[in-house]
């Protein structure tokens, strides 16, 4: 019988209005314990007002080897950015 607890990834919302951010991981036997551990380990200094814990095995990550295929094509679409367009200074509110 194994007493090894699975790994969970921890996400903390630091205050209302902000998104949850990944802060690290921990081991816990069940989801209730994972929340308690996340609270005890990652919010000892008022770092958060809300927690997410996710079993690490459920996270699907992109493959760095595919980074070129996934992310390079966005690079030349500079027309998506407002600085692409030249507007005279005297035109306001654009």
């Amino acid at each position: 019988m194994s007493g090894d607890w699975p790994l969970y990834e921890v996400f903390v919302r630091s205050r209302g209005g902000l998104e949850h951010r990944h802060v690290g991981s921990l081991h816990a036997a069940d989801s209730r314990m994972a929340i308690e551990h996340a609270r005890d380990v990652y919010t000892r200094r008022q770092e958060g007002v809300s927690l997410w814990v996710v079993p690490s095995t459920l996270i699907v990550a992109s493959d760095p080897a595919e980074a070129d295929a996934l992310f390079e094509p966005a690079r030349d679409k500079i027309y998506r950015h407002p600085t692409f367009y030249v507007i005279p200074d005297e035109v306001k509110n654009l």
Partner: peptide, 15 residues
């Protein structure tokens, strides 16, 4: 702590 860790893991499997 071994029996404690095993107990928690066993309980999680039951859940």
């Amino acid at each position: 702590g071994e029996w404690v860790r095993e107990a928690a893991a066993a309980h999680a499997r039951k859940l």
